[in-house]
């Protein structure tokens, strides 16, 4: 079976005026569908950049990126946006909910953007799995960090993305809430065969994954 993610000699250089910052210096990565991969490495080694490229938020500088058979190096910005809309779910360290919307609306907006309309069955299943039934009418400020992150996860997976990309999802949570969120990711991976790529600084969090990738200076140093 074709891998869901396959990069070859992936490079990304940020330009800050005249200074060039090489964030990714040749990443070769293959991920199969249904895998739960943790990415670890020191700060500034390019983990987030890798995630952004894989999710189509930024374009790679050189090298090839195939995600679910789509070649990002050949895709326009609009095409990458469309791809992201249908195939990718993001979870960030900062929970990134829309502050003026309720939890329910925060989840539903992903379905609206995707354009397939509200799917109550999927919504119900996800909300129950994440234990959010009681919190749906609340706005983000009235939710704890753990609850906010669970809403963010619900939003990320409501449209059944091919890949869930999580950038330090437990980075702002205490250990108890971290455990809850990690268990959710684990469950998502097990029950729905959700492919997950999760960045983390926490060895315990990384241990939840099937596979741990270590990065340093824009390269993968162990897999």
């Amino acid at each position: 079976m074709d891998p869901i993610i396959a990069t070859r000699d992936l490079r990304k250089v940020y330009r800050l005026g005249r200074v060039e910052v090489p964030a990714l210096r040749g990443v070769d990565l293959t991920v199969q569908e249904g895998e739960f991969v943790a990415v670890v490495g020191p700060s500034g080694c390019g983990k987030s950049t890798l995630l952004h490229v894989l999710g189509g938020l930024t374009s790679p500088s050189t090298g090839s990126v195939l995600v679910d058979g789509n070649d990002f190096t050949r895709m326009s910005d609009a095409d990458r946006t469309r791809f992201r809309r249908h195939k990718i779910g993001f979870v960030f360290q900062r929970f990134n909910l829309l502050p003026t919307l309720t939890a329910q609306q925060n989840i539903a907006i992903a379905q609206h953007i995707q354009g397939n309309g509200f799917n109550p069955h999927r919504f119900q299943a996800i909300v129950e799995m994440l234990g959010l039934q009681e919190k749906l009418k609340r706005r983000p400020y009235a939710l704890s960090g753990g609850e906010q992150q669970r809403v963010a996860i619900a939003r990320a997976v409501i449209c059944e993305p091919k890949i869930l990309l999580a950038d330090e999802p437990t980075g702002n949570l205490d250990s108890e809430n971290s455990q809850v969120v990690l268990n959710m990711m684990r469950t998502l991976n097990r029950t729905f065969r959700q492919t997950i790529l999760m960045i983390t600084h926490n060895p315990e969090a990384a241990a939840v994954a099937d596979r741990i990738i270590r990065m340093r200076d824009g390269r993968i140093i162990s897999d």
Partner: peptide, 16 residues
């Protein structure tokens, strides 16, 4: 700005 970033990360197009 952040909210617009969130919408974009969810795949919202320019038109949206």
């Amino acid at each position: 700005t952040r909210e617009i970033g969130i919408l974009k990360s969810l795949g919202a197009s320019k038109g949206y």
